Simulated assay, not measured.
Amino acid sequence: MALQRTFSLLLLLLLTLLELGLSSYGDENRMYQRFVQQHVDSKVANRNESYCDLLMQRRKMTSRYCRYFNTFIHEDIWKVINICSTTKIRCRNGEMNCHESVVNATDCTLIAGFKAPDCRYWAMTGTRRVVIACEGNPGLPVHFSS
C-alpha cells in the first residue's frame, strides 16, 4: 500500500513538472515567434524608400497606431539564433540574459503619421551592433534591446 501511494505521488509530481516545462516552453516559443515577426527579414530583396512603410504594415506594427521605431535584422535566422550562444552581457533591465553581435540591419524611424494607414518611415540601413535577450535552453532570441 505504501509503495503504491509513493508511486502515485511520484507520478503526480512527474506530470506536474512535465506540464510546467511544456507551458514555459510554449511561452518562450511564442516570444521567439514574435521576435522573428517583428525583427527578422532575412529574405530582403529591395530596401528602397518604401521598405519600412511596407514591412511595418505587413508585420502588423501599424495596425492601431504607428510604432515609433523598429529594427529589422537582415541575416539568416540561424545566425540570429547563434547570437544567443555568445557571451552573456547585462541587459538594460539588469537581467543577465542579453547577447550582442554585429549584423546587417535596417532601422525604421517614424517621420509622419500617428494612426494607420498614415504611418511613414525613414529607413537607415547598414551594419550595426545589436543586443538581444535570449531565453530557454538552447537559447532563443525573445527581445530586441538595442
Score class of each variant (00 low, 15 high):
Asn48Lys: 05
Gly21Ile: 00
Leu22Ile: 04
Gln37Glu: 09
Asp41His: 11
Tyr32His: 13
Asn46Thr: 12
Phe35Asp: 02
Ser42Phe: 11
Val36Gly: 10
Lys43Arg: 14
Phe35Trp: 02
Ser24Asp: 07
Leu22Gln: 03
Arg47Met: 14
Ser42Ile: 01
Leu22Glu: 01
Glu49Lys: 14
Ala45Glu: 13
Gly21Asp: 00
Ser42Cys: 06
Asp27Gln: 12
Leu20Gln: 02
Asp27Met: 13
Lys43Trp: 10
Tyr32Trp: 10
Asp41Phe: 07
Ala45Tyr: 05
Lys43Asn: 14
Lys43Cys: 12
Gln37Thr: 09
Gly21Glu: 00
Asn46Gln: 11
Asn48Asp: 14
Ser42Lys: 06
Gln37Arg: 11
Leu20Tyr: 01
Gln38Val: 00
Ser50His: 07
Val36Pro: 04
Glu49Tyr: 12
Arg34His: 12
Val40Ala: 03
Val40Cys: 03
Lys43Glu: 14
Val40Leu: 15
Glu28Arg: 15
Asp41Leu: 10
Tyr25Thr: 02
Asn48Pro: 00
Arg34Gly: 09
Asn46Pro: 03
Tyr32Thr: 05
Val40Trp: 04
Ala45Thr: 14
Val40Thr: 05
Asn48Glu: 01
Leu22Cys: 01
Asp41Ile: 12
Ala45Val: 12
His39Cys: 06
Lys43Gly: 15
Gln38Tyr: 05
Tyr25Ala: 07
Asp41Cys: 09
Arg30Ser: 10
Phe35Lys: 03
Asp27Lys: 15
Glu49Val: 13
Arg47Asp: 15
Glu28Met: 13
Phe35Glu: 02
Asn48Ser: 09
Asn46Phe: 11
Ser50Met: 07
Ser23Asp: 05
Arg34Phe: 08
Asn29Ile: 03
Met31Ala: 15
Asn48Phe: 00
Gln38Asp: 04
Gly26Trp: 02
Val44Leu: 07
Gly21Asn: 00
Gln37His: 06
Asn46Leu: 11
Gln38Arg: 10
Tyr32Asn: 13
Ser24Tyr: 08
Ser24Glu: 13
Ser50Arg: 13
His39Ser: 08
Arg34Ala: 15
Gln37Phe: 05
Glu28Asn: 15
Val44Pro: 00
Phe35Thr: 04
Arg30Met: 08
Tyr25Arg: 10
Val36Lys: 14
Tyr25Ser: 08
Asp27Arg: 14
Gln38Glu: 07
Ser24Pro: 00
Ser50Val: 07
Gly21Ala: 01
His39Asp: 03
Val44Tyr: 05
Arg30Thr: 08
Tyr25Glu: 12
Ser23Trp: 04
Met31Tyr: 12
Ser42Asp: 09
Arg47Pro: 11
Ser23Thr: 08
Arg34Thr: 13
Glu28Pro: 02
His39Gly: 05
Gln33Thr: 06
Gln37Gly: 04
Phe35Ser: 06
Asn29Ala: 13
Leu20Ala: 06
Asp41Tyr: 07
Asn48Tyr: 00
Arg30Phe: 02
Asn29Leu: 13
Gly26Arg: 06
Asp41Arg: 06
Val36Trp: 09
Asp41Met: 13
Tyr32Arg: 08
Ser50Gln: 05
Leu20Trp: 00
Asp41Ser: 12
Val40Asn: 04
Gln37Asn: 09
Gln37Ile: 02
Met31Leu: 15
Glu28Val: 15
Ser24Thr: 09
Leu20Glu: 01
Tyr25Phe: 10
Ser24Phe: 08
Gly26Asp: 01
Val40Ile: 13
